[in-house]
Design a protein around this nucleic acid. Structure first.
Lengths: 211, 211, 211, 211
DNA sequence: CATGAATGAGCCTTCATTCAT
DNA sequence: GATGAATGAAGGCTCATTCAT
């Protein structure tokens, strides 16, 4: 009986195996970032990893799967931008600002990968869903925050928190995309300031005069 | 002089030729929308157009080129959403609202194509650039409008008009994407209302109580 | 019943037809000389002749046939180099010299076509045969001449006239090829002088001191 | 780094690979000699070699490259006809004779390949150059020999050694072509004898009466 | 006769995946 | 586990030739 067919690959059992697998993931990231997902050939990856074609299939079933592994490895910093969860009672605008800054920093740091994810999400439904979920995380957090501010009488009560959160998250994400992926450069601090201002305005928050 | 190679194909000289070319463009749109850009095979397109493989090459050099033709044909309504250029002295918020509604309507109407463009823009640099330019048109118009409102003392003077325009246009575009492409449905009027509200708030416009 | 199949094309009946055909032949020569026989496409030829693809088939069945027509048109000067048939009682060496000069001149004048013929003769057996016959003409003439000189006691009687003629004709033809086609240039007069000297020597003719 | 595109193929690393590659080269020679360079399809070659299409591309980029490999394999005997470098003080005519005999033997032995090279040299500039260089080797050797004979007062001092060498080498090469490729048969010994006689005569060497 | 669009067999090339060593 | 050669389906593209107008 064929053992390969569709089977999920077992994790490596030996140290050597772990090393090979890791080399493949690293190589894959390099190649994907350099050539794009579509142009990347499996043999490019194995070549970059200094291992044989066959070894690839010891650890992954196909390109999609290595890509998932690459994302998984990068996930930590990509999904949880280092948002030093700012303390609750602080100025809401400061929180938004911190959050935006953290997001943009993470985005820039992982720009190549974000670009890749963008590409793949438009090709492969699994990754489309992944991206959607990633977005949803931010949206939820923001929606919660908006709801909270509304409850405290600080934000425009007319707004639907979820839709507003979707819109505003999208605003930030899209601008990050345009700046760090498309390359229409804007100074980061100006970016943070403007996004924060727009966000705060949009919610009708009281703005402590800043700059 | 060689006519093959990378040469641009001559436009059809006869009515029959024009018909075939048009059939190919229509077929291409159908196939692209059905199967996606990457999965679309040239033979799928010619089959759909009821013509031979060779005929395809009479009018196009490759997939990229038909796709460009498809976009060109759809361009009219895609690039110029029917924004009945609202009269100048009207309520600024009403203008924004009209503009957003028009944008969303056009987006929904061409959702499949927008999705395609999104996909292709992440694959082919030419189309990436095309999308960028399309976006820039909206940004410019909006930036102009913001600058104008600031000059009239109606909008937050602290905002950089261009960055704000990029952010707000992105907000609308992204949400449209999420609703009409990803499929996280939201009622259109609510969408229009929220986006307009956020936009107006973001610029600190006086809002005439609406709903 | 198909009338086209394999049918030999009738010569044009109208003046207009004759003009089109002539244009095609001229165009074919241009294209062949520019792109080589293999790279020349029928559409290149019709384009160069400013006529439609279809018209080609009114006069020729295929590429081979136009090529034949091209050769036929050029044949006059190619097959019969302007060897002002030198008078019989003249110095044999002078005759050889005149003949070589005439050959080389004709060769240089039609170098591009010679190159083509060379190419095609190595591809198409009909033209290989054509070239062979062309060569045989020269060989025969030379063999006759050698036999004559031997009879008159002027040339090395040990030589087989036909083989010697083949060898010496080949010598001239090959050198012409190397000079005018390959492009390893040698001054024409030096070429004529050396070839004549070698030829005369080879036959052991008395050489009237020349240069 | 991409390994496909125009990259040169890596030599096989295993014995099995070497075997496959060798089989392909052999098959290529067979097919080329049988069908000619132009008619040979890559699939014919792989079929003849009993391997898949893909395997061809493991070792060669295209038809041109296999052909080069075929030539390379045959080069040994083609470029260096077994001219038992005759001792220097021997009769010059004997040396010429030996040399001609060796050349003709080699030519006949590799006639099919010579015919191929002739065909390809008229199609592909790389191989045209290869043929030119091959010819130049013979010309140089002969030019050296002529110069030497002139210095020793044995050969016609009026002749330019290089041009004469080109002419005489061409004479032999062309006749070999006509006999072994075109097929206008002549007995080999008669061929050797006549060519040697003509060559010796042409240089005005003293001829030790032979036959 | 001329036109030029339509046809489609034919060949090349790629690369994910398998498998013998 | 690792290796790298072998496989072959899949699709792109060309251009000689036909044919309706």
């Amino acid at each position: 009986m064929k053992t390969t067919e569709n089977a999920v690959r077992e994790p490596p059992r030996t140290a050597r195996g772990a090393r090979t697998r890791a080399a493949l993931v690293t190589a894959a990231r390099t190649v994907f970032e350099r050539d794009g997902y579509l142009n990347a050939r499996l043999t490019d990856i194995t070549a970059e990893a200094n291992c044989s074609t066959g070894s690839f299939y010891t650890y992954f079933t196909n390109k999609e799967e290595v890509f998932a592994a690459v994302l998984e490895e990068a996930q930590e910093e990509m999904l949880h931008p280092h948002v030093r969860e700012v303390v609750g009672d602080e100025d809401p605008v400061a929180i938004i600002e911190a959050s935006n800054r953290a997001y943009l920093e993470a985005y820039e740091r992982n720009a190549k990968l974000m670009r890749l994810l963008e590409q793949v999400a438009n090709i492969d439904d699994n990754f489309r869903e992944l991206r959607r979920r990633r977005g949803a995380l931010f949206v939820e957090r923001n929606a919660r925050s908006i709801r909270d501010l509304q409850a405290r009488g600080l934000a425009d009560p007319e707004l639907d928190p979820t839709i507003a959160a979707r819109a505003l998250s999208g605003m930030v994400g899209r601008l990050a995309h345009s700046v760090y992926i498309i390359g229409d450069h804007v100074d980061r601090e100006q970016l943070v300031w403007t996004l924060t201002r727009l966000w705060a305005n949009a919610l009708r928050l009281e703005i402590t005069p800043s700059r």
